[in-house]
């Protein structure tokens, strides 16, 4: 496995796991990194999609 410093995605996953209180071994972390990599690929479509500056999120809360 590459050093996480060479791989920002892996570094992010490791930091986020620690921040959220998870404790995993290296094999489990590797699986999670792979899954997060797939999400990141999908997220490219989301983050590059053009939207008007003021476009609102889909409403959820209805007081």
């Amino acid at each position: 496995m590459t050093q996480s410093s060479d791989n920002p995605l892996e570094a992010y996953v490791r930091a986020a796991l620690a921040l959220q209180g998870y404790r995993f071994d290296e094999r489990q972390i590797a699986e999670i990194v792979e899954q997060f990599s797939r999400l990141e690929t999908i997220a490219h479509t989301v983050m590059q999609w053009p939207l008007p500056f003021a476009s609102e999120a889909a409403p959820v809360f209805r007081p």
Binding site: L17, F36, A43, V46, M47, W49, L51, E56, A57, P59
Partner: peptide, 15 residues
Amino acid sequence: LIPASWVVQAQRIRQ
């Protein structure tokens, strides 16, 4: 672990 900015953008796309 998904960043909040991805989720907010996704909900905006949805609308």
